[in-house]
């Protein structure tokens, strides 16, 4: 198997509040892993630990067999290889759409500006945002912002893309446009870890689903296994909330 990420015994506490307890899972190249679970179960914290936006309390995160929690590892270099798409977009408000996409490649990866622009145009076209290159984030709708945020992450040429509830802040009619982009990326073989409440997306697009409850991985498996689970009470109850709505 072509392993990219391996998480071993990861724990995280905020003060005395234990949020993640001994979490283990691994991601191979081309995997689309969906993380589901109730609010407060630690999904965002797990994703933020993977990108080192939070510092884990214990455990290891192996990226190509190297523990990125070692003090000798260049955190910024690692972050540049793992893209992150936030619920609240986090586009740079002082830059145009195009500059949002090129600033990382130019300043962090030291890419040639022209080359970065070409790549940015390629991905902006892909997400259908090429006509808006001169707009500032404040002038875009939520769905448009999120599509730019995806293009921004892609322009860094990351090995893994992390999504933290990318559609939760969007109006219903905009959810589809973002999920369509993500579906295309998945089809093209992008390695993705997606925290989501969109069960249809998890079922149809992912090849692995991780169910979190109270800071531990309660169940994991193929979408088929997770969504037709009969013997796990917590999981069944969680899923039933989505069936009813």
């Amino acid at each position: 198997m072509d392993g990219i990420l391996k998480i071993n015994h990861l724990s995280k506490s905020f003060g005395t509040h234990v949020v993640l307890k001994d979490v283990n899972f691994s991601v191979n190249k081309g995997d689309v892993t969906c993380i589901i679970g109730a609010s407060g179960s630690g999904k965002s914290t797990l994703l933020r630990c993977i990108n080192l936006l939070e510092t884990p309390t214990a455990g290891e995160i192996l990226f190509h067999e190297k523990n990125i929690l070692d003090k000798s590892v260049d955190v910024n270099h690692y972050r540049a290889q793992t893209g992150m798409v936030f619920q609240s977009f986090n586009l740079f408000n002082n830059m145009t759409v195009l500059k949002n996409c090129t600033v990382g490649p130019v300043k962090v990866l030291k890419n040639d500006k022209k080359e970065a622009q070409e790549r940015a145009m390629h991905f902006l076209t892909k997400v259908g945002m090429a006509p808006y290159i001169n707009a500032k984030p404040g002038q875009l709708s939520g769905g448009q912002k999120q599509r730019v945020a995806i293009a921004k992450a892609l322009t860094m040429n990351p090995e893994v893309l992390l999504f933290d509830e990318p559609t939760s802040a969007l109006d219903p009619q905009m959810v589809g446009e973002v999920l369509d982009v993500m579906r295309t990326l998945a089809d093209e073989g992008m390695t993705m870890i997606v925290v989501t409440h969109e069960m249809a997306f998890a079922r149809d697009v992912s090849n692995k689903v991780v169910f979190m409850a109270d800071g531990v991985i309660n169940a994991e498996g193929s979408p088929g296994e997770i969504f037709s689970c009969e013997d796990n009470h917590t999981l069944k109850e969680f899923l039933s909330r989505f069936r009813n709505s």
Partner: peptide
């Protein structure tokens, strides 16, 4: 969120301050 967006693409503190 602006700082996190910058950190997430690997910007240093100084780059984040000056550019964002």
């Amino acid at each position: 969120g602006q700082t996190e967006g910058a950190k997430a693409i690997g910007m240093t503190h100084f780059q984040t301050m000056v550019n964002v």
